[in-house]
Computed example of a mutant assay.
Amino acid sequence: MATTRTATTHWEGPLLDGGKGTVSLDSSGLGSYEVNWPARAEQPNGMTSPEELIAAAHSACYSMALSNALAKAGHTDITLETTADVTFQPGQGITGITIRVRGRVPGLSAEQFASFAEDAKVNCPVSKALAATPISLDATLA
């Protein structure tokens, strides 16, 4: 069964001259977050950016895909710490994503973990949606 999730942004003003907005996570009701150009291209200063929201989505999706693949292979004692760095270059857009995952999966070799990690990078739905962007992976088994 397909699901749809919704977020809404209310924006006021010109982008580079004091414009700002609020992103609301409508489906979950978890809150609203302020966005503006300086938060995107300079320093966050308590606000978020589209790239940070993409990073959050990618790290969560990747962790879900990797844990699912590991569980299907019979591994159930799984601990993952996943970070996604989304690089934004003004004038160019999003130029790359780096996924760093540190895992603890008893009974799995580093080579096996790397294989599962690479498969999750390629097959998680967010990675597929962002396929036009270079995505690198740094996977380490503890």
Rank of each mutant, 00 (worst) to 15 (best):
S109A: 10
T140C: 03
E52I: 04
G29F: 04
D85N: 08
M47H: 12
I135P: 02
A84R: 00
Y62G: 04
A65M: 15
S63I: 00
A73K: 10
R104F: 09
N123F: 07
A65L: 03
N45A: 15
L141I: 10
P38G: 12
Y33P: 01
I54H: 09
A129H: 13
L70G: 08
N45H: 13
R5S: 09
S59R: 02
I54R: 11
S28D: 06
Y33W: 13
I78E: 03
W37A: 13
A131L: 11
F113E: 01
T133P: 05
A71V: 06
T8L: 01
S127D: 08
S127K: 09
P44F: 06
T76E: 15
L15H: 10
C61E: 07
T9F: 01
D77E: 15
E51Q: 09
A69R: 14
M47S: 13
L130E: 06
A73C: 08
I97P: 03
L141S: 06
L70D: 07
Q43N: 13
N123T: 11
W37Q: 14
T98E: 03
P125N: 12
S59W: 00
T8Y: 00
M47N: 09
L141T: 06
T8G: 00
A71N: 11
S59A: 15
S67D: 05
L70E: 08
G21T: 02
K128G: 06
E118M: 07
T87A: 15
S63D: 01
G91A: 12
S24F: 04
G31S: 08
A120V: 04
L137V: 02
E52W: 02
D138C: 01
L25G: 01
T3Q: 14
T82I: 02
A84T: 03
L137C: 06
L16Q: 13
A65S: 15
E118L: 11
T87N: 06
A131E: 12
T79M: 11
P90I: 06
L108P: 04
W37S: 12
T8K: 02
N68A: 15
L16F: 11
A110Q: 14
S49K: 03
P38L: 11
T4M: 14
V101K: 01
T82E: 01
N36D: 15
N36G: 05
V126Y: 01
G107I: 12
A60E: 07
A114R: 10
V35M: 09
M64Y: 07
T79G: 13
A142Q: 10
A117T: 05
D26E: 15
A120G: 07
L15V: 15
D77C: 02
G107N: 07
M64I: 14
C61Y: 05
L130N: 07
